[in-house]
Design a protein around this nucleic acid. Structure first.
Lengths: 349, 349
DNA sequence: TTGAAAGCGCTAACAC
DNA sequence: GTGTTAGCGCTTTCAA
């Protein structure tokens, strides 16, 4: 165990009082230049580091940000949150915070963990992922005045933004994908999505539909809703490709569905009826640019996850430091950031 | 912010002194049954939780386990550590610990982070991943007597185990894969591996070679070493499949290489010379059972990651609690756990 | 078995 | 600009 160096050691070494050391660390501008230098040298020399626990007891701030690590549901899309988590850890560290992990199987369990954590480790803030309609987690935190940011919009909340959030513009993503396909000459562009009701899924569907309409194509009958499995995508794609007026390209709400679609497209004989087969291959575009998309060569929409994480930390620090400012002086109390995904073009489209 | 409930509140509510509450929490056996009940009720009623910071100041234990989150190098194999991390968070929570995250670009940076963390948050232990020959991180921690466990063996350390570790038996995995292929009638089973020198890679190669030899097949000329890219795997597989006496099956050190190999195998015309084409398709087995393997249908070796994480926590708690025991009474000071991977059979082999 | 006192390392207030 | 004092919430002596 490294010898414990306290503020008293530094004070003694620098020939000042303990308080002066504390001042140098927390309010340097109040200390004379020369004294500060001396103290800083002592800090360096002794390898001193403020003890969080002691500081926390005094200030009530733990410099800890808590977030949930997901159980990696389907394996394919799971990697998105892992990348976000990595970015969060990095950005947080840069801002002087550390990330504390927890797991929870559902919202109720997550709220129980909030209470647990707040009683014990007292994280300064939470970062929530996977927001959805009627999210009880946000209201719980809001009720208690706990600072937090969500990665994901507050879906289905009528007016105003009840809290700070960061999100990626899914509709803009699928719109870009659809436009890309239109530019390539496709007209009948289908959509493989999730059942209506999920904020993220509906948003992504909307981007596709809107773009198709703008190009004078009626999206009716061109989309299928299904759960997020590779097999589901395969089946849904088959429906769209075997209809009387088959789609020639597919925009998918996820890489899982895109992979399934690709199976259909590439499987000999399963695709469009014979008279339509002559044309170019059916294009497929996924969402999230997961390792699977990379490996299999699926064109996909990439989310700027490191940037999203950095934005979360920025909003959070603003929230935490803004706390002390007179209310109303720190601008928008519930700022948000909407980032744009980018299309990564590969063989599939 | 939830109202802060302290031990004093509980004491008042239960009509006892503060110490009695502390005793109930820390050494329940020393308190009279009835008093304990009363205190526990008060705890429940008030929603009291011990404050970590205060406890830590007193005891010096933070109940924090620090570990690194990886930058998800190639995307395919990255998911392994994410799954481990999830398991670690879960197991740690069960044991009353939380996981603190950090990032580091290399061993030196990681050691700097150790020092940082130890000075500030004082984690009780570290969990290290990705051990390798001449790992300077372990010696640093060893020198300072910091408790830690590695997920990965201490490679290249001559005798004894210098520290607690958990690992998955890679050689046993590739041996099982090879045996599986032998049972299917294959004889010329190739190996796609990493360049010699990596502990993990060499171990996995050894399992393959050993099993082949036991079956009377000379492994010479049947293996290729390459870096861990899909394209690398594709090229290396081509070499092995286009030789005069081509391999009919391939065991791969990773799913990335297996995916590349599969590209070669499935690409029409690129595989074996014409006279050999008649036989069954070339089998391919990967390692790590990543989402990509699942999605593409690659037979692969699955690591019991949740179990590995749980083992890490078990060893750690033993280490941390054993501290107080008289030395020598707690059995093996550097225990280790070697887990077996399991073969997940899919279309590719 | 329970209570009183001390102090972990730090910082906010105030005095010098 | 610098030093003194007090106390955050807890546990660890020690005494009752």
């Amino acid at each position: 165990m490294p010898e414990k160096v306290t503020i008293a050691d530094v004070a003694r070494h620098a020939g000042v009082s303990r308080q002066t050391v504390s001042n140098v660390l927390n309010t340097p501008e109040v200390v004379r230049e020369e004294t500060r230098r001396r103290v800083l040298d002592a800090v360096e020399e002794l390898g001193y580091r403020v003890n969080q626990a002691a500081r926390q007891m005094r200030t009530g701030r733990s410099r800890l940000i808590a977030t949930r690590i997901e159980p990696d549901r389907d394996g394919i899309n799971g990697s998105v949150l892992d990348r976000f988590l990595h970015g969060l850890t990095e950005s947080a560290a840069r801002a002087g915070y550390r990330v504390l992990l927890y797991t929870a199987d559902d919202d109720t369990a997550e709220i129980a963990t909030f209470a647990d954590l707040l009683g014990a480790y007292e994280p300064d803030a939470f970062v929530l992922t996977g927001t959805h309609h009627g999210d009880i987690r946000t209201s719980w935190l809001l009720d208690r005045g706990m600072p937090f940011v969500t990665f994901g919009r507050p879906w289905g909340v009528p007016d105003g933004t009840p809290h700070a959030w960061v999100d990626v513009d899914g509709a803009a993503g699928t719109a870009a994908a659809t436009r890309h396909l239109l530019d390539a000459g496709h007209r009948r562009i289908g959509f493989l999505g999730w059942p209506a009701g999920s904020g993220v899924g509906d948003d992504r569907r909307e981007g596709w539909a809107r773009t198709l309409r703008a190009a004078g194509v009626d999206p009716a009958g061109l989309d299928r809703a299904t759960s997020d499995g590779v097999d589901d995508g395969e089946a849904a794609a088959r429906e769209l490709l075997e209809s009387d007026d088959p789609a020639t390209a597919l925009v998918c709400v996820s890489d899982s569905l895109a992979l399934g679609a690709l199976h259909t497209v590439r499987s000999p004989g399963a695709a469009a009826p014979a008279e339509h087969r002559a044309g170019p291959p059916v294009a497929v575009i996924g969402f999230d640019d997961t390792p699977v998309a990379k490996a299999v060569g699926i064109t996909s929409l990439s989310q700027p996850l490191a940037e999203a994480a950095a934005s979360c930390v920025t909003l959070l620090t603003r929230l935490l430091d803004g706390d002390s400012r007179p209310s109303g002086s720190s601008g928008d109390p519930h700022p948000h950031v909407l980032l744009q995904p980018s299309l990564v073009v590969r063989r599939s489209g």
